[in-house]
Write a protein that binds this DNA or RNA. Sequence first.
DNA 1: GACTGTGAAGCCATTCACAGCT
DNA 2: AGCTGTGAATGGCTTCACAGTC
Lengths: 209, 209
Amino acid sequence: MKAYKIPEATVMRLSIYSRYLHQLIDERIMTVSSDEIAKGVGVSSAQVRKDLAYFGEFGTRGVGYKVEELYGHLMKILGLNQTWNVIIIGAGKLGSALALYQGFTDRGFIVTAVLDIDKDRIGKKLNKVTVEPLEVLKDRVKEHNINIGVVTVPAAAAQDVTDRLVDAGIKAILNFSPRVLKAPQDVIVRNVDLAVNIEVLSFNLAFNG
Amino acid sequence: MKAYKIPEATVMRLSIYSRYLHQLIDERIMTVSSDEIAKGVGVSSAQVRKDLAYFGEFGTRGVGYKVEELYGHLMKILGLNQTWNVIIIGAGKLGSALALYQGFTDRGFIVTAVLDIDKDRIGKKLNKVTVEPLEVLKDRVKEHNINIGVVTVPAAAAQDVTDRLVDAGIKAILNFSPRVLKAPQDVIVRNVDLAVNIEVLSFNLAFNG
DNA sequence: GACTGTGAAGCCATTCACAGCT
DNA sequence: AGCTGTGAATGGCTTCACAGTC
């Protein structure tokens, strides 16, 4: 199967499969079937096979997949065979938590800079990085070859920060602010909207339950 | 149009529309068209109308929607015309940040209890709530009539915590741990997987860019 | 016998396009 | 003339089912 446009849902599942495979590696399991992966992560086995088929043939008919080998393939596909430098804008509670989040570090995302406008936050140490003023954004992005920007500022400041990230040449933004950000076509923006997520629960409780 | 099963994507957008309408209220804007909402939140106007059509006819042909009225309808649909009591399990960086997250409070989600197993965290104050040991989970859920559980514990502890929440009668769980949680059919689980989100960016940078 | 890889079918969400109302 | 509400068309993801391989 030739890959042209990969569904986003597929990419998200690949990330989940890869974590599950990591778990299997820890458990010293050598081989796994699409059905076992499916059960492990809560999807159908056909789904697992279709997702993998976008990128090649990784398994052996009648046998399954070699765990370590498939894990390696997935990490490569996801671009996790390298590290990525991350800048976080907004050193409030959420930004600070993300700066210290092990789940990023474990997968090769290195928080290289954390910026804020608040004088009280500037100078604060978060692991190895010190919170710096917003003005150094462009310098830090160039200097540390930063690939990914994380926006954890209040809604009112989000677009300004985005414009600055775009101006600095950032091509991927993870947005935690509750605002729809405008950015050029070639900049990928992903929204992690915490309020939306809890409101879906609220809807389901109110509407069905 | 009769509502039976509402697409989850629709519910998420309603949440976003409602926030945009709130913004319009602040700006004293009285009337809005589906096209203006669409532009404001980055979807198509047909999408906006279809989403609303699941729940009724809220507009006036030739005119548009009354901002406050539509806002009221959406808040009611989303179950946000009431408050919800929330318990957070895991008082690490992320759990603490969520406990203090204004975006929840603003929309009527009240963090009523925060629990952890770590002695060093128990007793810590987060706004009005004090971190308590995991053992009081069932008591607090009953006592405060808690509707929603938020899981911010490490992967290894996530299923145990989920089992406890289910046992306590919780029907909605927001899961921040990188594990697929097993829960009964009637319990709604939503995953906010921070690593998956940043890995989708990594994939796009590596695969296309 | 077991399990992958994949075309075909099925299903669901989005977009189109226009009738209907103000 | 302008904008909503909606049936029909489209497009895309998921599931089915089975041929192919070990």
